[in-house]
Design a protein around this nucleic acid. Structure first.
Lengths: 197, 197, 197, 197
DNA sequence: AATGAATGAGTTTTCATTCAT
DNA sequence: AATGAATGAAAACTCATTCAT
């Protein structure tokens, strides 16, 4: 009713868009992509299907937006660039591992969606690039850290840590609350902390 | 004159059934369960939909058959009971790890299906029990081996090895042929072989 | 500018819904429930199958709606409560019989559907309750009328009149226009009018 | 294994045919025509579908055979021609009514099938002739009896008795065992017995 | 004579997407 | 900007009928 400036409108649209993506992500992750209909999403966002289609060309594009969003949320550290500079590689690795476990505990669906898409990476072509890029980036980041720690085989170690993280996510999905998430976290972190250097 | 060698018919049916399961498994694993239609499977097996339904009551039952098949193939060792008895725990673990890598290289789809189901384990109820049981069994088996190796924290170590194995599977899906599967295998096996005891 | 007269939409939907029910009833009654496909109905209503399913969850629910509709139309008298109070039991029975014959002549399908369902009452569970309830209600209503007419065996007489009515409906289906519906009506009514009291 | 004469073979075929018809009738009547598959029938008769098709060209032909069979069974009196000659019209009517009630009690399905087909008489064309012929025959037979009883309006009375009989069948289907079949039978018979002449 | 494997058209139902209002 | 009615293609599943053996 009140007149809006162009800017306000644009902001409103951006906010709405994010809400759609976030709700869609939740549904995709909990029910699976094919088990979630556009109608379901529209209902969740409390918005008509028609309007939803003014934000995203089609379901696949919305999926990609959801993946982007999930990956950003899941891999973002709770540290600023400045804080990062003051840490040793060992400490950064600790931060990464802890960050991962936090996401796993607090935003289960994020990982559920990411991993399930990682596996069926080939079945929806447009998804492939996005997912595999993130895996490569993450592995490279770990690899560099191991290099600076003077690890004898950094590439190998980066792959192994990455695998361990994904695998724990899967076990957590399968075993549910009976899985000793905390204990395993301690164990892994200690493993890296006690390495020479 | 008689209605044709009864036994041959039964054998033919068994063989056909296995072919269906194997083809369905391939499609489920590469394209995803919901993305694979019964028509797709019928086309793959070169058989009418109707006939397919004389083998399996519905799509979900076929999925369960595929999972059974995948789990059996994927977890079966190439050793007889007798051979197993002559090995030390360390050597058995080596066998298990090697067996897993072999499956991963030779029957990619098996792992792809299993893991993808493991993640969305809740969305198809009839699947839940089967999958989580296998995860539990496998973890227990590893745990016992670590116990007999005198490992200080066998449960933890069993979870970690299980996670590592799953995670490597995922990375292999994402990175494809560029993934240094062999090298990582050597590295992991060496890691376990060099442990005290 | 506003999303279009909300009320009109709702009214339109109600009207459309009634049209579907009425057309479906006609097809169910003339061709049988199992012999009428959703496609047939959609074609009759000139509407896509998809839209039809936005009105009724499934075929069985549409059948139940058709039964409700048929029962209401078929058992409703053309009299108001007030008019009813001024009539003697004998006159009410006359009204009931005449009402039945009117429905039979003017809305053949109504009775056709009801009776055909009455017979196979067990084969579609959700239908059973509805149908048998109406039969019970109607019989009781007749019974009470015979009681107040001082009939020596009201229950028996109620069953007999009910049976007569159903049976005439069937004969009318079988014999078609050659059946002397009017004459039989007169005869039955006279029979009841001439009874003592 | 033992050699058969042509005659024995033919007899065997006739017997088998009758068994098929009788079993099919039972299934059609209890589950409905469209709810009974050829496979169901083959299973009931313990015979392959292929062989079944050597007896009947198609499902519709089998239905017609079942109707024929049902009508014969349902309308046949337990009296010989000779016995019939010695009865008065009144007594014959009594026999007919009692015969009907016996069938209703002992072979529920017969009536269930006949009536349900009578109603949907139009939906399967080949059935129409058969059914309506029997209704005509029966009505005529009753009419003649009422003529010889000197009834003032024999046609009307014949229709009414026919209708009553069908209607009672329907009520029996709907109300089940709670329906006072016996009592109603007595009442109807008494009604006709006490008529003057 | 007898089997049941095999087919394919048909059925109910769902859902991404478009469009009049 | 916003709605949800409307469409149509595709999915899972069934079954009468045919045919090789």
């Amino acid at each position: 009713m009140s007149p809006r400036t162009e800017k306000q409108l644009a902001e409103h649209r951006t906010a709405k868009r994010e809400q759609i993506v976030s709700d869609a992500l939740f549904l995709f992750a909990t029910r699976g992509y094919f088990n979630t209909s556009i109608s379901d999403i529209a209902k969740e966002v409390k918005m008509s299907k028609g309007l939803l289609y003014s934000y995203f060309e089609n379901k696949e594009q919305l999926l990609n937006a959801a993946i982007d969003f999930a990956l950003k949320e899941a891999t973002e550290l709770n540290l600023t660039e400045d804080q990062l500079k003051e840490l040793t590689p060992k400490e950064i690795i600790k931060e990464i591992i802890e960050g991962f476990f936090t996401v796993l505990e607090e935003k289960k669906e994020l990982w559920s969606l990411i991993v399930s898409l990682a596996i069926h990476v080939g079945s929806i072509p447009s998804v492939h690039t996005t997912i595999s890029k993130v895996y490569k980036d993450l592995t490279l980041q770990l690899q560099e850290l191991f290099v600076s720690m003077g690890h004898p085989d950094p590439e190998n170690e980066a792959f192994k840590l990455g695998a361990l993280i994904d695998g724990i996510g899967i076990q957590y999905m399968v075993f549910g609350e009976s899985y000793p998430l905390r204990k395993i976290k301690e164990n892994i972190i200690n493993g890296y902390m006690n390495q020479k250097k």
